[in-house]
């Protein structure tokens, strides 16, 4: 290394590097700061309202005290359960076709393309679709329409994960089963599904996490209900729309309930994501 004066260009490059790397640090801090701010706001505002009442009392009228979110929680659980029970089997079967029967066909690549579009479609469009297809013919809002809207959101997620997970099952397993005389459908059901079970479950969990927080599709399919109702042919209470209504109101009791409800949804969604991650990684460690 010469001991002459250092190359002037190098100093500039070094500086540029320092600036760029500094900006990268700043960017990371920027991103993390927002996360911390949002979570802190959510937790401090939501904790205040967390109590057993939240789970046992129904939604109160405005400008009163007490009350809870029991009817909204139950309504949301029902809608999610039915939406997933309709959407997951369809998604499962479709993914199975794409991975097993039609693996290299043109139809599959078209379906994969369309599925990816549906996966990222704005959920409010799905709400509009279900409004036109279900609410109008039925003559009114209903839990069934809401559940169908959620099912439409679940299907692309489950199709995607099912296909990917099934494709990861090594072919020799299937070939061995076929060689032993097992018919194709049983090869899939007994061998492929079993091998990919953890991944399939992960996919369904992710779909549940996705629809738990969705508000837009429920806005004009289910509407809302102030009281305890299990009747799905009419409006049922549900958490996202309830939070939406409560938060816009200046009543402090309602706002407290809205934040607590938001905290509940976030905890549910994040736990489902973590559970999916844990199940997914435990499978790969086999």
């Amino acid at each position: 290394m010469s001991t002459a004066t250092p190359n002037p260009y190098y100093a500039g490059r070094k500086r540029g590097n320092l600036i760029a790397m500094g900006l990268c640090y700043a960017a990371t801090l920027f991103g993390l700061t927002w996360l911390v701010l949002i979570l802190v706001t959510l937790v401090t505002n939501g904790m205040a309202g967390l109590s057993l009442d939240l789970l046992t009392q129904n939604t109160p009228p405005p400008n009163s005290t007490g009350g809870g979110l029991a009817n909204a929680i139950v309504g949301s659980l029902m809608l999610t359960a039915i939406g997933v029970s309709i959407g997951a089997p369809i998604g499962l079967l479709a993914g199975t076709y794409m991975a097993e029967y039609g693996r290299h066909s043109k139809l599959t690549s078209i379906i994969r393309f369309i599925n990816d579009i549906l996966l990222s479609a704005p959920s409010i469009i799905i709400g509009l679709f279900v409004y036109g297809a279900v609410v109008v013919p039925m003559g009114g809002f209903s839990g069934i329409a809401g559940a169908l809207a959620l099912a439409v959101i679940v299907i692309p997620v489950v199709v995607r994960t099912t296909e990917d997970m099934l494709l990861l099952v090594p072919n020799p397993l299937r070939e061995a089963a076929s060689a032993l005389g097992l018919p194709r459908s049983l090869v899939i059901k007994r061998i492929a599904y079993r091998a990919a079970k953890a991944g399939l479950v992960t996919g369904v969990l992710l779909a549940v996490a996705r629809v738990s927080g969705e508000t837009a599709p429920l806005l004009f399919t289910v509407l809302n209900n102030q009281f305890w109702s299990l009747d799905l042919t009419n409006s049922v209470a549900n958490l996202p729309v309830t939070i939406n209504n409560f938060v816009n109101n200046p009543d402090p009791n309602w706002k407290k309930l809205a934040w607590s409800g938001a905290l509940l949804i976030t905890i549910a969604v994040l736990s489902l994501n973590i559970a999916a991650r844990v199940i997914g990684s435990s499978r790969s460690e086999k």
């Binding site: 029902m78 359960a81 039915i82 029970s85 839990g143 109702s229 299990l230 009747d231 799905l232 042919t233």
Partner: peptide
């Protein structure tokens, strides 16, 4: 779930 969801006599 459907059974649960049958219209309850409110």
């Amino acid at each position: 779930v459907m059974g649960l969801a049958a219209p309850v006599a409110n």
